[in-house]
Design a protein around this nucleic acid. Sequence first.
RNA 1: GCCGGAAUAGCUCAGUCGGUAGAGCGACUGAUUCGUAAUCAGUAGGUCCGCGGUUCGAUUCCGCGUUCCGGCACCA
Length: 641
Amino acid sequence: MVNIKLPDGSVRSFEGPVTGTDVAADISRSLAKAALAVKVDGVLKDVYLPIEHDATVEIVTAKMPEGVDLLRHDAAHILAEAVKELFPETQVTIGPTIENGFYYDFSREEPFTPDDLVVIEARMREIVARDEEIRREVWDREEAVEFFKSQGEFYKAEIIASIPDGEEVGLYRQGGFIDLCRGPHLPSTGKLGNAFKLMSLAGAYWRGDSNNEMLRRIYGTAWANEKDLKDYLQRLEEAEKRDHRRLGRELDLFHLQEEGPGAVFWHPHGWTLFQQMIDYMRRKQIQAGYQEVNTPEILDRSLWQKSGHAEKFGENMYLTQTPDERVFAVKPMNCPGHIQVFKQGIKSYRDLPFYLAEFGKVHRYEPSGALHGLMRVRAFTQDDAHIFCTDEQITEECLKASRLIHQIYHDFGFDEVRVKYADRPEQRVGSDEVWDHAEAALLKALNEMQVEYELNPGEGAFYGPKLEFVLRDAIGRDWQCGTVQVDLNMPGRLGATYVDADGERKTPVMIHRALFGSLERFCGILIEHYAGHFPLWLAPLQVVVATITDEADDYAREVQAVLTRAGLRSELDLRNEKISYKIREHSVTKVPLILVVGRREAEERTVALRRLGGKAQEILSLDDAVAALTDEARSPLERAA
RNA sequence: GCCGGAAUAGCUCAGUCGGUAGAGCGACUGAUUCGUAAUCAGUAGGUCCGCGGUUCGAUUCCGCGUUCCGGCACCA
């Protein structure tokens, strides 16, 4: 007798061992058909495997997230089967599911072409139509290794050989294709259905290591039904429309060109947005007790040798030689410069914590393949600051900096921020004891912050562990923005000291912190986050005054003058065009407010206010309109004050 | 940096099986003075990414380079 408890709490009894299919069939025929796998006491299993003992059982269908994940997993296997049928000389490696889809990495001399993708996808649909049974087999490890070697599948053999002793080697067979897999899998290929699509080709290193062979990756997406697939493809299209590179051109914010790879040419509107960010940040920082400084962009190479940058970061640095043959480095970070400022005059323990901030433009020679619009550039502006403090102050200062970051992100409309904690990297300066100490202090602050965080092992800066604040772009790519780093190394290397209460000279701790991280990147994320519809206080162009007839020109000029005096950013549109033409044009470039003035408004000293995306218009007296808009255009900082 | 793809008018793109190119939108000029998301007509605009090679002739074919796009690796 086997008692099966279902999620609704009911219990069904069976004579002997049953399978997930049996249980599903006992409930309803349609459920039996929809069953993709089964969860036995919370563990996913193949639906056709016997359940020998009493258990809690849940039937997994495509309606559940786990079910969709299974579909994607099987789509990857079917992709591999199709590729092996069409290109038998190809070796298979791994094919996991990912967010919204799956991929499979193949080893193959010849690249796949976009045309191949069409053929492979067609073959996948054939395999689905064949509805091949998928069955799990447990193999002896040695036999499995030998088997795959004999098939010329050396990568698979390597994976199996690396499975820890004592773990079962489970293989799944579908038609003529057999693959190592932890499972579970669908009972047959037909269950995948047709809601899948191969998306793109890419290169990817074996085991993610750039020293290894580059494999050929095929990305695909798979969903429970055609509608979900269609919705997903539409979401991708929508995301493309908010791509900051596209909006950057459409809204005339910035451009990049061949002569300056990774360097931004800011146009007037883009630069206005950029300056708004700086303006906000500057005030916010002053409130938080920072002092703003500015340090040289080019400094003698020897300083970078002392700081450790030359050795650990040298490959990313621009060097420049002057006619007297002296070698300088263009700064990739602001920290050594700030230490020079700190070192001027004798500092007392009473001066600590000592805050120095800089909107510092840094240059880093990034790998060419990494460049990406504003998100990844070679010349960028950091809202960088360094907090010189005592050992006891570390935790408190990290906390303060992290709180500041969360507040600022909130003001810019981001409430979902992911935090990562990155500890010591292989390439680093300083002793293990010092690192132990720095990591412990940062972790303590992190725990006191009471935010969820992920570990990012080995990804700290070369001088200390760091917190990373991560935002996501329109198409799901994550970008690190703010950061807080505890540095017990660099102040010592560059000779920074303070006089402690006991009269002894001591080396201060330095906390590196950036709020936006890179202003360029944050600006890119902002563009995508708002899809170009910036909140009024950030919008580069806030108001367009548009006339209906040239009889209103003089009045329109007057309106704009009043707006300018009130501190609003406006433009005049006196062109001899229909008002609907003007409205369409300014709507397309996402100007938040349009003030329409015609003969009537000129006579009555009013304006017709039209908001972006709105249909209605509002007739206001000029004075009321300006007062209301000025109030509306206040930044979060001004509102809080 | 690595794998794959791309580069034609300001933008989006078509095209030439090798005989120096075209559309829509935009720009400009003129007409129109119009009430809330595209008024009409006309005109101009191209080193077909760069450098070599093959060829009578290259935007087209080949090679090298540059940049960009999608990934991987790297990272703010």
